[in-house]
Nucleic acid binder design. Structure first.
Length: 459
RNA sequence: GGCGACGUGGCCAAGUGGUAAGGCAAAGCUCUGCAAAAGCUUGAUCACCGGUUCGAGUCCGGUCGUCGCCUCCA
């Protein structure tokens, strides 16, 4: 079946065809590890995971590369700010290397808790300094660089179609620029290599043909993507914020050194908004996945929440709608659990419709609606179960593993339950209701059924 | 100031020009000693105005509003 993805480069939905028959090359921009990820960041990684799982569901092998930016990402893209890792180091009194390691670990934990499949290859910027230097040399040899007092820069005016991905209005940028461009020749020029400040030693710095310093932020992606996937591969992903700066710069670098636009498809995840405002690390509420967990939420509820919207539109987060996702996921889990063991065969009709939906640019809301239709269908439970578990290869909600939590109910509560059962048997309704109130006040829920009373801790 | 996106029932959110998916919440009903849980049922003409069309949420123009990028950002 044809897979259609929206490609930011052409701004069209177009059929996806792998460049190589055997394997799809996928590069996803990873985190800068100077702080924890917030749930807005994680939305993008969930989108990329759905993309990867969709490719796999269609039978493709995927070679997935994700970078860890542990050096070079400045606090300002004007190339005048500080390295984020160095700032974090000063803030905490620990080394930049320690900080990078800690936040890398925290990031990987978050991915695991969201059931995000690990990349085939992780790559750290600091492990690939030589490759980055080589890439810069190639760009330099082709005449796209110039030096200033603080570094080696890419001259974007040498590329007639610089910024095409972002549909940048170069003249408009010049006119409306609010940033001092310093020694840069054009506002869109960017650093390939930055010199260590004279007289001070950075924690992270390397020798290079141009002097001691560190690589610019954009070069790592071009260099590492080319190393692991080749200079032209299938799909490159990132957040929507990369459409206008980071990705055009990656493309420029690849054009300058390899004469390719790096990737056949460019796909971008859109922001999570908090009460109609962007969630950011510098201002506003900073919700981490751990924050949700601390409030008693299952991290996979956040994954379900994200599946409720298409990746290519902003998604508004508030507690009312998030609680809705929590309830929906729990109902789905409980229902599926009660279906019992899956049968051998999935329902082909549902499977075909499912495939159509995920292959239409990852329309997960539609796919989820199909799940609820399946839940209400009159197919035999084993077929429904097998079909749902098959879909979950893409949803990644862990429905195969899920089972109701085994809860230990305190003996005191069990005694109250028993007493209530006696009262009910003797039709002492007032006593029974009083006992139920006692149990409820203690934080437990009671459900009467033909098989007897069930107790569980209130969620 | 420059550029761009969006505005669908209480909340979140799909939607290929042909008479509005789904989830949550709410209400009613069934079940229940009463509840809970579960099941069933019930709501929207798509910000506003004008235009194109046999027909527009879906295309064009305008108004209002919100948001994003141009500062760090997924």
């Amino acid at each position: 079946m044809v897979i259609q993805f929206f490609d930011t480069y052409t701004r069209t939905v177009r059929p996806f065809e792998p460049l190589h028959a055997d394997e799809v090359g996928l590069y996803t921009c990873g985190p800068t590890v100077y702080d924890y990820a917030h749930i807005g960041n994680l939305r993008t990684y969930i989108f990329e995971d759905i993309l990867r799982r969709t490719l796999a569901y269609n039978g493709y092998k995927v070679r997935h590369v994700m970078n860890i930016t542990d050096v070079g990402h400045l606090t300002s893209d004007a190339d005048t700010g500080e390295d984020k890792l160095e700032v974090g180091s000063r803030r905490t009194g620990r080394t930049a290397w320690d900080i990078a390691e800690e936040y890398t670990g925290a990031f990987k934990d978050d991915l695991a808790r969201l059931n995000i499949v690990e990349p085939t290859i992780w790559c750290k910027a600091t492990d690939h300094i030589a490759e980055q230097i080589e890439t810069i040399r190639a760009i330099e040899a082709n005449g796209f660089t110039y030096a200033t007092s603080d570094g080696i820069y890419f001259d974007t005016s040498k590329l007639p179609d610089y910024g095409y991905l972002g549909r940048l209005d170069i003249e408009g940028l010049k006119a409306g620029s609010r940033v001092d461009t310093g020694e840069k020749r054009n506002p869109t020029d960017f650093a390939l290599w930055k010199f260590s400040p004279a007289g001070s030693k950075r924690q992270m710095e390397w020798d290079s043909p141009w002097g001691i310093g560190f690589p610019g932020w954009h070069i790592e992606c071009s260099a590492m993507a080319a190393k692991y996937l080749g200079s032209y591969f299938d799909i490159h992903c990132g957040g929507e914020d990369h459409i206008t700066v980071h990705h055009p710069n990656e493309i420029a670098q690849s054009q300058a050194c390899c004469n390719t636009r790096l990737a056949n498809f460019w796909m971008h995840g859109y922001f999570l908004q908090l009460d109609e405002t962007k969630m950011s690390k510098s201002s506003g509420e900073f919700l981490r996945l751990q924050t949700l967990i601390d409030r008693g939420y299952d991290p996979l509820a956040y994954r379900y929440f994200c599946l409720g919207a298409v990746y290519r539109a902003k998604l508004n987060f508030n507690w009312q709608s998030f609680d809705g996702a929590v309830t929906a996921l729990n109902r789905l889990r409980q229902t599926a659990f009660e279906w019992g063991a899956p049968g051998d065969a999935v329902d082909e009709g549902y499977r075909t419709r499912f495939l159509e939906m995920i292959n239409s640019d990852l329309n997960m809301p539609r796919a989820l609606a199909l799940v609820w239709e399946l839940v209400r269908s009159d197919l035999p439970a084993p077929v429904r179960k097998a079909t749902l578990l098959d879909f979950d290869r893409v949803f990644g909600l862990g429905l195969t593993e899920w089972q109701p939590a085994v809860q230990s109910i305190p003996d005191a509560i069990l005694a109250l339950v028993e007493e209530r059962q006696r009262a009910r048997a003797e039709k002492r309704w007032k006593d029974a209701d009083a006992l139920r109130d006692q149990i409820t006040d203690a934080g437990f829920e009671i459900e009467d059924s033909p098989q007897g009373a069930r107790v569980r801790a209130k969620s």
